[in-house]
Amino acid sequence: MPECNNCGEFVTDQYARVFAPPEIHGVRVCPNCEDKLRSGAEIREANAPRNNG
């Protein structure tokens, strides 16, 4: 099962297919990673909070 490499949460196969390059197992950041974003090959803090919840 694919998982987020940042927080370890489960992500769907479809989410991983869209957001993870084929050579990487798992995604770098998922919707459960509060205030984190993908920025090129890195993960960074969001400039503005997502306010999930």
Rank of each mutant, 00 (worst) to 15 (best):
K36T: 01
R44D: 00
T12P: 07
A41W: 12
C7F: 06
P21L: 01
P49Q: 06
R50T: 07
P22S: 00
R50F: 15
G26H: 11
E3H: 15
C7W: 07
N32Y: 12
R28E: 06
P49K: 07
E9W: 08
H25A: 12
V18W: 13
R28D: 09
V27K: 08
E42L: 11
T12S: 15
G8K: 05
P21S: 03
Y15W: 14
F10W: 12
G8D: 09
R28N: 09
F10N: 00
E42F: 12
N6R: 13
F10P: 00
E3V: 13
F10H: 06
V27R: 08
P49G: 11
A41M: 09
D13C: 04
V29D: 03
S39I: 12
E45N: 07
Y15L: 06
C4T: 12
F19W: 15
H25W: 05
E9G: 02
I24V: 15
I43V: 15
A16T: 06
E23A: 00
R38Q: 14
E3A: 12
R44S: 04
T12E: 12
P21D: 05
C4W: 09
P31A: 03
A48L: 15
C4I: 11
C4M: 12
H25N: 05
N5M: 13
R38N: 08
D13H: 14
A41E: 13
T12H: 08
T12K: 05
A20T: 04
L37A: 06
K36E: 09
A48D: 06
P31T: 05
S39E: 10
